[in-house]
Amino acid sequence: MAENQGSMTINLKVWRQAGPKQPGQMKSYVAEDVSPDMSFLEMLDVVNESLIKRGEDPIAFDHDCREGICGSCGMMINGIAHGPDPGTTVCQLHMRRYKDGDTIIIEPWRARAFPVIKDLVVDRSAFDRIIAAGGYISVNTGSAPDANAIPVPRDNAERAMDSAACISCGACAAQCKNASAALFTSAKMNQLSLLPQGQAERSDRARRMVLQMDHEGFGNCSNEGECEAVCPKEISMSNIAVMNREYEKAALQKKS
């Protein structure tokens, strides 16, 4: 199979930063014996193995499921979040995408709200706090009516699922020239606003999530759609329009 197509040598330039407060810099590495069948992260594994053998600190990067669903991994690859393939997380990017001798530049997500912890690992807890500000339907365990008691039009359920597919990887904010979290925030808001269960808290949710998004220090949306282009789940920027609408309605309703 493909592994017989021979191995490649890849030149890497990777951001290394020992800790949140330490200064960082780009460092060059050579990845040897890279098989085209390897995933991008497996290629980094190989580099790290050689670093460990030399007694050096391996490159830290977040990863977990390696099948594109947990949202842990994410890095700028040659200036694009998650690399060159659309609808793909880094873990699903394969080295057959590259040629022998290629140079690849790897940087962490950059945003005020995503401070670097180490190397390519950033702190994305800002996203959790945005969800905590209202990205749910308040229903205590045990208080739910029968699941079929409230019909949901199929089209709405499907659209809600489109938005709910977000894996919270942070690529949208990382790619956005303004480091805006609009796509992330709006996807959850849209999912819940499409469902009858989500109506009760609709305006409160819109207000609180938008305020939290600002509070975290994300930038504003310039409606360029770079977020959608790098989203591994291809979540539409139309969600952002919905968020804007939800927020406007909420702002007009606000009595206090």
């Binding site: 749910y136 339907i137 229903v139 365990t141 045990g142 208080s143 739910a144 009516p145 029968d146 699941a147 079929n148 409230i150 019909p151 949901v152 039009p153 199929r154 359920a157 499907e158 809600a160 699922m161 709910a164 999912q191 819940l192 469902l195 269960q197 989500g198």
Partner: peptide, 22 residues
Amino acid sequence: NNIIDQCVAQGVPFAREYGGQL
């Protein structure tokens, strides 16, 4: 059965029929 009820109430977008039922 309670699990499905709970999850639907939370807004889990399960697949549905055209009539809106699960």
